[in-house]
Design a protein around this nucleic acid. Structure first.
Lengths: 353, 353
DNA sequence: TGTTAGCACTCGATGCACTCGAGTGCTAAA
DNA sequence: TTTAGCACTCGAGTGCATCGAGTGCTAACA
């Protein structure tokens, strides 16, 4: 545990360094308002803090820089205080006030506004559809042996896929198949449908059906519907990292940008945490080696207490922790609210059947 | 017009420089197989070529580098010769052999494979739906005053949108509306529907309908459906530019990456050309100032002669012109073929109505 | 006992002189 | 017309001196 004065100095160093990106010297610190100490005293404290591992010194005659441990301490002892930047609040209100037609549009807009407000890179994931239930399946024939299959979930999510039919199915055969499908699948969750269930189900249905082969094939084609949409990752402000001095070196940014470009899977992992509340992963605390020079601040948003997606901000460890945490906090609530309005509570009973 | 020998030397310089990214000296050139000349002779020719504007000299004691005019000449006089890289052919065959469910998936895969094969950045646009015709409209109620509207085009493209209904519509009112919509809209092109038509149509229909307000509102909500999907741009290998030595400087890449990140509109412009065939835009020939250090090689693919999308490769002006042109050429045919199979010919009469 | 002034010391950054070598242009000979 | 020879140019790399921000330590001070 640090003394109050060490705490003060550490915080001052963090806050100074976050803004200037230059090692902070004792002189600079002693000039700060709240710092009523001479440079020499501060130097002594800094030497102690360095010995304790909270500060680093790039080289002997340079100022001090917070170590990852230093940031961790700073974050853990952030006094809630300080109001949130009113401009940010206004911008966020505006975004969530806008009418957005698609659920995914909300998520995408979120990633954009997050990146704009923080000037870091933002990622947003979701919404996941595992737990959504099948509401309706429809086949619309186009051409003689093709059809568009449409699957609507209880929350209004729509998936579609072109499917191939064997060409000798009579017209009422199709409608019969659709009828059977709907009767059997209404209310089944997407994840259940995707998992083993489809097989047992197909077999069962086939007993009462003539077009055995066709049905199996149809269900099989449908099964993969929506998998890729399952948890789309939106990246906002990928190029913002280029503005950070710690990433002026192409070879440093490249792996990061590559991850952002194609790392659907990786990013999903980054955002998929069970722990509720805001996560702050500093440098080495990140499992992903590509992120070990970065801080990731993330959080999951929920519907009726169930996590359906996540948001996060990626930047250098030299990050504006307070600000980003406040913003993430706000956005998480806003998303939770927005999604709950559309998907939440009424889901079980409000469908009118 | 250049002499055959100047031509030879210019080509040799281009090809050497494209690979090495270093200014080419007379000594280096004279060592090449096909070059039976002494360094001194080559120097003379190079001096002439520089005076004519085909070569640049970074500084007095450096080798020569092709100017944009030099590249232009090189491209214009490319002898068709040379077989296409068999590895590339194999990779492309493989990609287009794969079964892909969504039209857009084809386009996306194309952008990926293009970027992998060329090691530059690839963009792919399409398919555009302006000219597709409405095949079917459907409303699936979810909740009491909401529904999912689904619009299927004759080519199997599906669009969907949640719409708001006034809550006092009787059940058969909805189905009546849908029936009227389908009767009136079947066969109408998307672009026609989106443009002024919808208004006149709504008025006309309203005369025979009770739910005047509801119908107008519904049509209006539907109108914007699919607009954003209209011509999605896929970017492949955005980070490939980082490997190019001419873009080692962050400040040089940044505007480019920013354009790739968010420049839907801009990229669309880049790829939207009426001229058929392969376009090669070298440096200043690009209208977009961000691209004036780049070469863009692009082409449009068609269905029944109508352009429905485009592909392109973006790299430094020091580009492997022959290779990229060959690949773009191949991919254009492959895309045209793939899309024609799905959308083409049968569109007018093969729908079975 | 904690704080501060003073001072020698460290070390990266900056600037400058110097060398090295790839490559040129020019001239004269083949 | 081609080529050998040679002086010249200029960027890149290297060594060296200078500068200054910042430190650690010691001794004096409250």
């Amino acid at each position: 545990m640090l003394t109050p004065r060490q705490n003060l100095i550490l915080s001052a160093i963090v806050e100074n360094y976050v803004l200037s990106a230059e090692p902070v010297g004792s002189r600079t610190l002693s000039k700060r308002q709240e710092m009523q100490l001479s440079p020499a005293t501060i130097r002594n404290e800094m030497a102690d803090l360095e010995e304790l591992g909270y500060l680093d010194q790039p080289h002997t005659s340079a100022g001090r820089v917070p170590s990852q441990k230093g940031y961790r301490y700073y974050v853990d002892h952030l006094r809630a205080g300080a109001e949130m930047d009113p401009q940010a609040v206004a911008a966020l209100r505006e975004v969530f006030r806008r009418r957005m037609d698609e659920l995914e549009e909300i998520v995408q807009q979120t990633s954009l506004v997050l990146s704009q407000l923080t000037q870091y890179t933002a990622i947003a994931l979701g919404p996941q559809v595992h737990h959504e239930k099948i509401h309706h399946i429809q086949l619309i024939p186009i051409g003689s042996d093709k059809a568009v299959a449409i699957l609507v979930t209880d929350t209004g999510h729509v998936f579609n896929r072109q499917v191939q039919l064997s060409s000798n199915i009579p017209p009422d055969g199709v409608s019969h198949m659709v009828e059977v499908l709907n009767r059997r699948l209404h209310g089944v969750t997407m994840s259940r449908f995707r998992s083993s269930m489809y097989r047992e189900m197909a077999t069962e249905m086939a007993q009462t059906m003539e077009q055995y082969e066709d049905l199996i094939s149809l269900v099989d084609q449908l099964r993969s519907v929506g998998v890729e949409e399952n948890a789309r990752v939106f990246v906002g402000g990928a190029t913002n990292i280029l503005a950070q001095p710690e990433f002026r070196d192409i070879d440093k940014v490249r792996p990061l940008l590559e991850m952002l470009e194609q790392g659907e899977g990786t990013l999903q992992q980054v955002l998929t945490v069970d722990t509720p509340g805001i996560q702050v992963k500093i440098g080495m605390e990140n499992e992903n080696p590509t992120l070990q020079d970065c801080t990731v601040i993330s959080s999951v948003y929920t519907v009726d207490g169930v996590p359906v997606g996540g948001i996060g901000v990626i930047g250098p460890t030299r990050m504006q922790y307070r600000r980003v945490i406040q913003i993430i906090d706000y956005v998480t609530s806003a998303l939770t609210k927005a999604f709950t309005e559309r998907l939440g509570s009424g889901r079980e009973g409000g469908m009118g059947h």
